[in-house]
Every structure is written in structure tokens, then in C-alpha cells.
Amino acid sequence: MISNAKIARINELAAKAKAGVITEEEKAEQQKLRQEYLK
């Protein structure tokens, strides 16, 4: 099960992506976390 901290990070990265200020490194982290969440 995914931790609350990881869910919070997913939401934080989603907000950054929506604002258009996300880095390529953060995009990769976001994809990794989303895949983990979906498992």
C-alpha cells in the first residue's frame, strides 16, 4: 500500500505540472509514483 506521504507528493507534483513549473526530473518522479499508486 502506498503511504500518505507519497500520495501527498503525487498531489504536489500534479499542482506543479498544472502551474507549468515542473522539471523533467519531477515529471519522471511523478510517473514513477503514479505507477506505484496504480499497483
Rank of each mutant, 00 (worst) to 15 (best):
M1I: 14
M1G: 13
M1L: 12
I2G: 09
I2A: 09
I2M: 13
I2E: 11
I2W: 03
S3T: 12
S3R: 06
S3A: 10
S3I: 10
S3F: 02
N4S: 12
A5E: 14
K6Q: 12
K6V: 15
K6A: 13
K6L: 15
K6C: 09
I7A: 07
I7W: 04
I7F: 02
I7T: 06
I7N: 05
A8M: 08
A8Y: 02
A8W: 00
A8I: 12
A8R: 11
R9I: 03
R9S: 02
R9K: 05
I10N: 02
I10D: 03
I10F: 11
I10G: 04
N11H: 15
N11W: 09
N11L: 14
N11M: 14
N11T: 08
N11K: 14
E12H: 06
E12F: 03
L13Q: 01
L13I: 04
L13E: 03
L13K: 01
L13F: 00
L13C: 03
L13N: 00
A14M: 11
A14E: 14
A14T: 08
K16M: 06
K16V: 04
A17W: 03
A17E: 15
A17Q: 12
A17K: 05
K18Y: 04
K18E: 12
A19P: 00
A19F: 06
A19I: 07
A19D: 07
G20M: 04
G20A: 04
G20V: 02
G20E: 05
V21A: 10
V21M: 11
V21W: 06
V21C: 09
I22Q: 04
I22N: 01
I22V: 04
T23H: 01
T23N: 05
T23S: 08
T23D: 04
T23Y: 00
E24T: 08
E24S: 07
E24I: 08
E24F: 05
E24W: 06
E25C: 07
E25R: 07
E25N: 07
E25F: 06
E25Q: 10
E26C: 03
E26A: 00
E26M: 02
K27H: 06
K27V: 12
A28R: 11
A28I: 13
A28T: 11
E29G: 00
E29F: 02
E29N: 00
E29P: 00
E29M: 03
E29Y: 02
E29C: 05
E29V: 01
Q30M: 15
Q30T: 04
Q30K: 06
Q31S: 11
Q31I: 13
K32E: 12
K32G: 06
K32L: 13
K32H: 08
K32I: 10
K32P: 00
L33W: 01
L33P: 00
L33V: 03
R34I: 15
R34N: 15
R34F: 15
Q35I: 10
Q35V: 07
E36K: 03
E36S: 04
E36V: 01
E36R: 02
Y37E: 14
Y37D: 14
Y37G: 11
Y37N: 08
Y37V: 12
L38F: 07
L38N: 12
K39I: 09
K39L: 07
K39V: 11
K39H: 13
K39F: 06
K39M: 10
K39T: 15
